[in-house]
Design a protein around this nucleic acid. Structure first.
Lengths: 150, 150
DNA sequence: CTCCGATACTTGCTTTGTTAAGTATTTTGC
DNA sequence: GCAAAATACTTAACAAAGCAAGTATCGGAG
């Protein structure tokens, strides 16, 4: 096989693909852990946001949990029925919906707190705390750029 | 607002969220660009893989483009009908399906090559070439770890 | 007070992600 | 050879992502 494919073989490293794969590595074990409780990654993110930041409007939750508002809307009813969150409409602006985490929701988070911490500890140990910090710094500042040409 | 929410406000930086947001920053403009041609991000990834690596078996494409095989299977027929790729079954192993990019597919890539390059050039310029390299290195080595506890 | 544009969600529709099962071909072990 | 295991997809079914369009409030200009 002389293997000199006509395509230019640019094989430049791809940032989009690297981000996808990294996400898989990190979230795979988390998803696995959550499967036992019947919550998925998105519900987990919503609960974490509510637990860390207190009651929020749907738009704020969507922003913080990296979800589209429409996706969140569809998650809210099931999560309320499962007793994980509670919602109310503030009388001063009835367009809004504010949700908060319930005790059952907090309990669910605490049930997984140890394992979740173990997963991230493992990542930190395998990867190195310093490199993890560096990665987070880079990712954070990447978010600040405006990639639109012109 | 005294703002001292009862939840512990751990506000630890979250690797999963950071990866999600970074992906949005990078892929947002690409998706926008592709919308005009009626191809989505996944088809774009498949075409790029084929263009860079030449004809491949479905499994190999799925691996390279970060898709599940079942997702790829579903995309292949429409992409073939749109004339972007061609498929054939190698006689020496008729379980396999090999796909390659067509001229129309290459044309589509070339139509967007300039804009795509501009987007990544913009990212590189805003973010810094050295930091981009560092980020890619970190992401690449993150993929190599095994995050399962124990 | 009333109409108009902006907000904050909601819904509908299509495509994808994910899992699990199913089908068609090889390959292997006796 | 030949049944059993492995490989390489396919299909089915259902939750979730994304996008566009629709609904209910609100805030303001006249």
């Amino acid at each position: 096989m002389t293997e000199s494919p006509s395509p230019l073989r640019q094989t430049r490293r791809s940032l989009p693909i690297a981000l996808l794969r990294a996400r898989e590595v990190v979230m795979g074990p988390i998803r696995e852990m959550l499967a036992a409780s019947g919550v998925n990654e998105q519900k987990w993110r919503v609960l974490r946001v509510l637990q860390e930041q207190g009651p929020l409007e749907l738009s704020q939750v969507a922003e913080a949990a990296c979800l589209l508002l429409s996706s969140l809307t569809r998650m809210v009813r099931p999560m309320e029925e499962e007793g994980l969150i509670a919602r109310h409409t503030p009388p001063e602006d009835r367009r809004k919906t504010v949700i908060r985490i319930t005790e059952a929701g907090e309990a669910l988070i605490h049930r997984h707190a140890a394992e979740s911490a173990a997963i991230f500890a493992r990542i930190e140990a395998e990867f190195g705390a310093a490199r993890l910090e560096a990665l987070l710094d880079l990712l954070e500042s990447l978010q600040k750029i405006d990639p639109r040409p012109r």
